[in-house]
Amino acid sequence: MPTAIITGSSEGLGKAVVLKLLTAGWHVHGFSRQPSEIAHPHFVDHRVDVTQVSSVQNAVAVATANNQGIDLLINNAGAASMNALLLTPSKVAENLMQVNYLGAFHCIQAVGKQMVRQRRGLIINITTVAVPLALEGEAAYVASKAALDALTQVAGKELSSQGVTVVGLGFGPVPTKLTQAVDGNKLQHLNERIGRPNGTSLQEAADFILEAIQQANPVPGSIRYLAQIQSR
């Protein structure tokens, strides 16, 4: 039975992907700060703060105990904040970088080592169309996700020779807690701009991730979007 670790698994897109993987026969370790409502014999719920390296390392040690391999890591945990650049508190910018970039960095290091030992594995970093569009009003968020994209590209190159593939998957606005506070007209305008006038549902985003997992030979370090945006 293939085994996955998903961060940000207690709600939103993470939860939707966990449910799809369980249905597809995966064993899933969910990493999140809040308890999950999912009760399934093949789901293990871990309390993890991805911004704390020791928290990540301890959870990965538990997940890989008894020689349990990890086939898939999805770095989905994320934070968002929409604000004009000059009005964004530095604490907010710091937190976005901690969660969106460093959180994934910690998980890639901890799980990546396990995957290098196995000489196989797939790491998916969840990103956003806001980076290639350089969306105004989201400077700190875009910068943190751009850092994640750069990490994806370099990790893809570094780890591919060890049998570990790293890719990024990007989305427009998906109806989660992160987009609740955003003005509806702005979301509609953005969705039209990226060729998805009806928006992107949680199920569509989760299906896109599942398709990527099943893809035979993904390009290491590539970033693909569920939107009319050129892959990178």
Partner: peptide
Amino acid sequence: SMGLVTLISDLEE
């Protein structure tokens, strides 16, 4: 460099 990374990862285990 990647061979060294592999060696270190394996040794930690």
